[in-house]
Simulated assay, not measured.
Amino acid sequence: MARDPYDVIGVARSASADEIKRAFRKKAKALHPDANPNDPKAQDRFAELNNAYELLSDADKRRQFDRGEIDAEGKPRFAGFEGFGGGRPRGGPGAGAGPHGETIFETFSFGRDGFQRGGGRTGGQPGGPPPMDDFFDILSGMTGGTKGGRGRSPFGDDFSAPPSGEDVTLTIKVPFLDAARGSTQRVVLPTGESVDLKIPPGTRDGHRMRLRGKGKPGSLGRPTGDAYVVVAVEPHPAFKADGKDLRLDLPIALDEAILGAKVRAPTLDGEVELTLPAMTSSGKTFRLRGKGLPADSGAGDLYVTVRIVLPEASADLEGFARILKERRKGDPRDGL
C-alpha cells in the first residue's frame, strides 16, 4: 500500500502549493539516485517521491485525495457513506440514507437472481447508481471482509467481492547507448497492447517506470492495475557505467606511450582528441569532465585508462628491450 503523499514529501495537509514544491525539490535532491549510487533502494524511494508530488501538485487530484475519493496511488476508493451513524439520529429522518437522502439499498434488490439494480438515486453520480467499486466495498465492510475477499452476507449467502486488477512487472532490454543517450522503445504489454516508452537520457540498469492503468483489468468495474517496466541496460564492449560516470580502457601503442602522442578516444558524443605526455605508463587514467552519463544534477565524467599494447615480436624490439634491461635502475615493484 502506498504511503500518504503528505508524509512522503514531508509537509502538512494545510501546506500551500509552493510549500509542497519547495519540500519536493529539497527531498528530490537528497533522494536522487545520482546522490545515492550505492543505495539499491534509492530508485524506489525517488519513484515514490515523484508519485507523491504528481498527485499533490495536481489541484484536482489533491482535492479528491483530501476528500478520500482516491487513494495515494490516484485510484478511486470509497471515502465513506452517510447514513451509517454519520451524525444523524438513528431511526429519524435520513437514517440509513446517502448524501442525497436516499437509502443505501434503494436501487438494488436481492433475490434468486442475485443483485438487481433499479432506477433510484444513490450516493454515486446524481441520478444514477453508485459505482460498482463503491458498492462492493460497502458489502465487504458490512460482512467483515476485505477488498477482494470473502465474507458472510447479511442475506445468508457467501459474498465474494471481485478483485481489483493486478499490477504487472515486465523487463525490457535496452542497448547501452540507447539508455545513455535517451531513446524510445516499443513495449508489448501482457494485454497485447504496444506502447512506445520514452527512455530518458542517462537511464541506468534497474530503472523502473510506472504505466498507470496498463496492468490487468479488474472484475465488474473494479480498478485496473498498473504496469511496471524495469530497464535492463545491456553491457557495452568499451564503456562501463560507474554511477553517473563512465569508464573506458583505451589501447595505445608502445611508441605512443614512450614518445607521447595525440590519440582519439570515443565518448557518448563522438570522438575527442586526447593528448598523451611522453613516458605515459600503462594504467594511467585521464579525466574528461562532463563526458559521462547525463543526470539532473549535472553530467558525470569519463575516466579513460590507457593500456599499452606491445607490437609483434622482432629482433629490433628484443634488442631494444635488452638495452633497457641493462640500463634499468631499481625494481618497479619496490614498495609493494
Rank of each mutant, 00 (worst) to 15 (best):
D178F: 05
S219L: 13
P190A: 11
L56S: 02
A253P: 03
I323Y: 10
F135R: 00
A42W: 05
E273F: 07
E48M: 12
T146C: 06
K21M: 14
K214G: 07
R63H: 13
E193T: 12
G319L: 12
D301H: 03
S194M: 14
A265G: 02
T122N: 10
G92P: 06
A47G: 12
K21N: 11
R322P: 00
L197C: 09
F110W: 15
F78A: 09
E318F: 10
P33N: 08
R204D: 01
P311G: 05
D269T: 08
G182R: 04
G283C: 09
R63I: 13
D134Q: 10
K61E: 05
Q43R: 15
S109P: 03
V11L: 04
K216T: 12
P294R: 00
F110A: 11
A253Q: 14
R90I: 10
G111H: 08
D44I: 13
G120V: 09
F135G: 01
L288V: 06
A161I: 05
T267M: 07
G290P: 01
T107R: 09
N36V: 05
A52C: 06
D157P: 03
F105M: 14
T224P: 00
D71N: 15
P129W: 09
G83K: 05
Q185V: 15
G101N: 06
I323L: 15
T224D: 00
A179K: 03
G192W: 05
R181D: 02
A321V: 11
R112K: 15
L254G: 01
D39S: 11
N38G: 13
E54Q: 13
G330A: 03
S57I: 02
P37G: 10
F65Q: 03
R212C: 06
D58W: 07
G80W: 06
